[in-house]
């Protein structure tokens, strides 16, 4: 098993957001995590990536046989956990090529590989950028600076293509994307999928799942997974909205 989350509780500034998450992810699988705004979807993504503001109060996360929660954020990244941010951060003055190369070499060094040369890097960059339909001038621009929302999301997938993670967590990568950009992003993700890696796609809308077809869909509400199912669950949610699920949960409690 690649990832096993057991009874995970996490809080932000003293407020408990995640209230006991259980989730198992095997290599080769795509899991979609859906839910209304404020249900804890992004919190889960950030906890897995190691954001310090989110305190884990209970539970465990085993990733590739190791205790993920004990690792620093950079080591998680080097171990192959990749978070595509909902709001990618701008880093003025640091050009994308330099940033990517630094990241790639940090991961390579950790895995006992030599640094990649500037020449090899450029070759690799051309190949990866084609995958996500990005212009080469992108490499010269500062990381995310002045990018449109769609460009930022595409840049996240480009970085994913470079780092070739084992576990990719897409945090609302579809929000704000028009249909053309959505297709490009989904195409990029699909091309990167293989039997050795896994994707957790966090989303509010069903449309992304037309293009990145999930094996499992989980509904997160008030910090718990309240319903799991196959891809048809997503369609059901789109038709009925989250209200019926909310009502079910309220009734039970």
């Amino acid at each position: 098993m690649m990832l096993e989350i057991k009874n995970l509780h996490a809080s932000v500034e003293g407020t408990e957001i995640l209230k006991g998450i259980d989730l198992k992810v095997n290599a080769g699988e795509v899991h979609a995590i859906m839910g209304p705004n404020g249900s804890g979807k992004s919190t889960l993504a950030h906890v897995l990536a190691g954001r310090e503001e989110y305190k884990v109060t209970k539970g465990s996360v085993i990733y590739e046989g190791k205790d993920l929660l004990k690792m620093t954020p950079e080591d998680r990244a080097r171990e192959g956990v990749f978070l595509a941010f909902q709001y990618p951060v701008e880093i003025p003055g640091v050009n994308s090529a330099y940033f990517l190369r630094t990241a790639l070499n940090a991961v390579r060094q950790y895995n006992g590989l030599d640094d990649i040369s500037a020449f090899e890097f450029l070759k690799l960059a051309r190949e990866k950028m084609k995958l996500i339909d990005m212009d080469e001038s992108f490499l010269k621009r500062s990381v995310n600076e002045g990018f449109s929302g769609g460009e930022k999301k595409r840049n996240e997938i480009l970085q994913m293509a470079f780092l070739e993670p084992k576990l990719a967590i897409l945090d609302e990568t579809d929000s704000g994307l028009d249909i053309d950009a959505l297709k490009i992003v989904a195409h990029g993700v699909n091309r990167l999928r293989n039997k050795n890696n896994a994707v957790i796609a966090v989303t509010h809308y069903q449309r992304l799942l037309n293009y990145i077809v999930p094996d499992y869909v989980h509904v997160l509400y008030k910090g718990r997974i309240v319903k799991s199912g196959g891809k048809e669950l997503a369609l059901e949610l789109e038709e009925q909205g989250y209200d019926s699920i909310k009502n079910d949960v309220e009734k039970k409690s």
């Binding site: 990536a49 990244a77 080097r78 990749f82 990618p88 630094t102 990241a103 780092l163």
Partner: peptide
Amino acid sequence: FYCNQRGIS
């Protein structure tokens, strides 16, 4: 954190 998440210290 963004840099950390890409493996950069």
